[in-house]
Amino acid sequence: MSEAGSPAGMMPSTPVVGTGRRHLNPSLFVGGGLVLLVVAMALVSYVWTPYPPMRVLGTEAYQTPNADFWLGTDRFRRDVLSQILVGARTTLYVGVVAVGVAALVGVPLGILAAMSGGWLGQTVMRANDILLAFPALLLAIMFAALYGGSTQVAMIAIGIATIPSFARITRSGALGVMSTDYVTAARAAGHGPFAIALRHVLPNVAGLVIVQASVAFAIAILAEAALAYLGLGTPTGQASWGRMLYEAQSTLRSAPHLVLVPGAAIALAVLGFNLFGDGLRDYLDPKLERR
């Protein structure tokens, strides 16, 4: 090349910026911490809870937090802390399965719609629009009516209802990726559509999908709580944060902690997953690196 002899060595071979190292951003740190907390609660509940969570104890109902019952007792004289710990399992279970169903179906559909175009792409998106017309909760209620109220039915219903949002966001991201020159270059290099989807499209829409997943996770947790609250999700006799809220509603004034504790747990979990999603997206983006 003709650029020899540059005194201070700003040679073209030297990349101009950055080190390529990634850093733990605050969102990822705080969000990850909250997510870990929920996971830890769920794990701990398998080996230890202060009391059997659903057992009626020989003590007073409506106790405020004290040395024996750290988060108090409910109207059935059950320990609140134990229920919260076990409820974390339900929450995670619902979130993971609902988001898993939605993403595993929605993301490939979105990529298919973007890459095939024509009648196939149109058909996929129209079917998607029809599904989108059903509110998640309504679908869940329908499912509960058909198959009986259970945690499994609730989360599959929520998952199905969330498919369109994944398909839609994946499709719009994939359309952008498909119009770039690097996809043209990959075609000119001889890659088929499947290889392009895996090598280029999926990694580049991953950020969008992750954020959507974190939002969907939060929505799923809330929806489970809402279904349990309506008495359509997790049945009586199983711990669930939503069910705890439902059971505490009549005593909102006399025993507010029974609402506050599961309410705070839900809020923190939702916040945690949202932050975690944002942070993870940034962490995985090679453009946002340590300077």
Partner: peptide, 13 residues
């Protein structure tokens, strides 16, 4: 092929 836009012709990931 070599393309016009040096930003979009290389996969950022």
């Amino acid at each position: 092929l070599v393309f016009q836009d040096p930003m979009s012709s290389l996969d950022p990931r």
